[in-house]
Nucleic acid binder design. Structure first.
Lengths: 338, 338
DNA sequence: ATTTTCGCCTAAACCGGTTTCGATGTTGAG
DNA sequence: CTCAACATCGAAACCGGTTTAGGCGAAAAT
């Protein structure tokens, strides 16, 4: 059914090798022949088959994307979806397709690394994965080029959102608005969380506020329910905070819900901030104060790093890209009188 | 680097063919030999390479996913993301990976069909695509098994959300709440839109309400801005509707915004409904009245249909699956006094 | 004892390309 | 006129599997 290199070679009256060389711009093919081959190929709709090419060259022009699908929401996760979307379009510009790497395929479970070899991916990008698992680090330390997002492995390229600075900026913003009792709700253990907590403490320190252990609360990312509970917990304190920084916008929605239930007006009675800058945050009343991550640039940068490592294995060094965040003032942090 | 069938055959002292056959459960391999092969494979971590297998068998265990990435938000589109997520996990259960099909890869543009052949996908699922384009229908009428979601091609399997019934149900709900001036805002031209408009008219007809052309407004899917404008347009009418049905939840958010700007309370002054049932709709005040589409089941069903066509090319017939929707009452449609 | 049948395994072709190496004809230098 | 250099092209090996056709020894049938 599909048209192969044989069809082209037959139609041109040339050998298969010559056609292949013409397509790969070998220097020992005359300009006319090359032209003839290309014209004929276009005529009969020939494209070299990726599978066959891969088998011989071991270059699939296929990149793996690894994320933890164990969590309830994989592709639905808005941060991940945005990064992925951008990563994907950059890859396509360079002629790469993408494939999801997982360990639940059909048979007896393959590991991530095995899945990568099974599909001959040229490289792999890891986002929102469980970076502490042995399976992930096995892949990270393998010979397969890889880039990580929001986590740094030794000697591997990575793209980091400036989480530390982001939270710092947010705390300062709250401080400038007159808040002194600023609580921080953090997500699950991860590099991101660690950086954000560090940012929180660093900001408090800078502003000469004494950290209180009851103002540091644990919750889950992307979970309104969990955010709801964290908010309740904080508001029940004998001395509740006047401003609460949530792990992300979705959990902030849970916090807003909790505030509403407690008959607390936002931001008059209590201030709340999110993180991520999802579109819907700006459609709320009050508009959500939040930190916008530049997901578009993160995905693009990751793709560029990865492709660079693949196409220039010698010269390419592992790079670390820091992508700046941006504070979106919104209206959910109120000005407090001194 | 990677371990191949040769390594297994060498270690077992068997020929390559025997190893291959042992792996593919050929009957002319003794139980002991088969056992030996499998054990050795497990020991040295061998998995048959998908690329090599595909080349010979023309079965890639790879499925294409086609969606229109021309729109601004591809993977970010919440309906699409949900369907895809479910489709993907069902595929993985059956040992299939997925690849995105597009026509922007590297070179001179391949068509969708060419991309499918280029990657040897076993089948392709089309969602949120431009079903009216020649390129898409070329693929749909090719010999590659395919399944569509929310659009029916002749003689091809498809999964349809019950859009007609969904809208009908929504109109009836509004009617039962006392509304008589019910406007319908629809999205871009597509089967979905056509079905929904039909559902709208059919419901009006059933309820003996006379349709008014000024109550049928055009907007865009997934666009708060567009929803905002549509809402303004409707509210400026000399005789504005008391209830507005929006194309989806996101555009409903735009409509809510417009209402707020016009100092209209929802639902006291005007009622608004969405479509899709996104999580955030239920976190608003008032909670959004909407129709929940069973995206999970849609994705799963599509995968099952597609895999069935692939694995049983003889017996499989094109099937049409209708996935029921569910009304989520919410609070954004008010009871109106007769 | 000879032939048939069977059970088990291997050799080799093949999938659709890429790439090495050599063949051929042409040209330029000596 | 001879020989080297160059420009073009093709034959064949190869990538890692699958699959067909056939080989070989042992058991069963004649």
């Amino acid at each position: 059914m599909a048209v192969t290199i044989k069809d082209v070679s037959a139609k041109c009256g040339l050998s298969i090798s010559t056609v292949s060389k013409a397509f790969n711009n070998y220097s020992d093919i005359s300009a006319e022949t090359r032209e003839l081959v290309h014209r004929t190929a276009r005529e009969i709709g020939y494209y070299p088959n990726a599978i066959a090419r891969t088998l011989k060259t071991n270059r699939s022009y296929n990149l793996g994307v690894l994320y933890s699908d164990d969590g309830q929401n994989g592709l639905t996760h808005s941060f991940f979806a945005q990064v992925l979307d951008s990563f994907k379009s950059e890859c396509e510009k360079h002629g790469y397709d993408i494939t999801f790497i997982n360990h639940n395929v059909g048979w007896t479970g393959m590991t991530y690394l095995e899945h990568c070899r099974y599909r001959n991916v040229d490289g792999v990008c890891m986002v929102c994965a469980d970076f502490y698992s042995t399976e992930v680090s096995e892949l990270a330390t393998s010979d397969i080029p890889c880039v990580t997002i929001d986590h740094a492995f030794n000697n591997r390229s990575c793209v980091m959102s400036e989480n530390l600075q982001g939270v710092q900026q947010l705390v300062r913003y709250a401080y400038d608005k007159g808040h002194r009792k600023i609580a921080f709700v953090h997500g699950q253990r991860s590099s991101v969380t660690e950086n954000r907590i560090t940012g929180y403490y660093r900001a408090l320190n800078e502003l000469e506020l004494t950290p209180r252990s009851d103002y540091l609360v644990s919750a889950l990312y992307d979970s309104p329910t969990s955010g709801y509970q964290a908010m309740l917990q904080l508001m029940k304190l004998p001395e509740p905070p006047t401003c609460v920084l949530m792990p992300d916008d979705h959990s902030a929605l849970g916090a807003l819900e909790a505030a509403a239930e407690l008959k607390l007006r936002v931001p008059e009675d209590v201030s709340i901030a999110g993180y991520d800058g999802i579109r819907l945050g700006q459609m709320l009343h009050p508009k959500l104060t939040t930190i916008k991550q530049d997901t578009k640039r993160m995905g693009m940068q990751a793709a560029l790093y990865l492709i660079d490592r693949i196409e220039n294995p010698r010269t390419a060094v592992s790079e670390v890209g820091c992508i700046p965040t941006k504070l979106i003032p919104g209206e959910s942090i109120a000005q407090v009188k001194g």
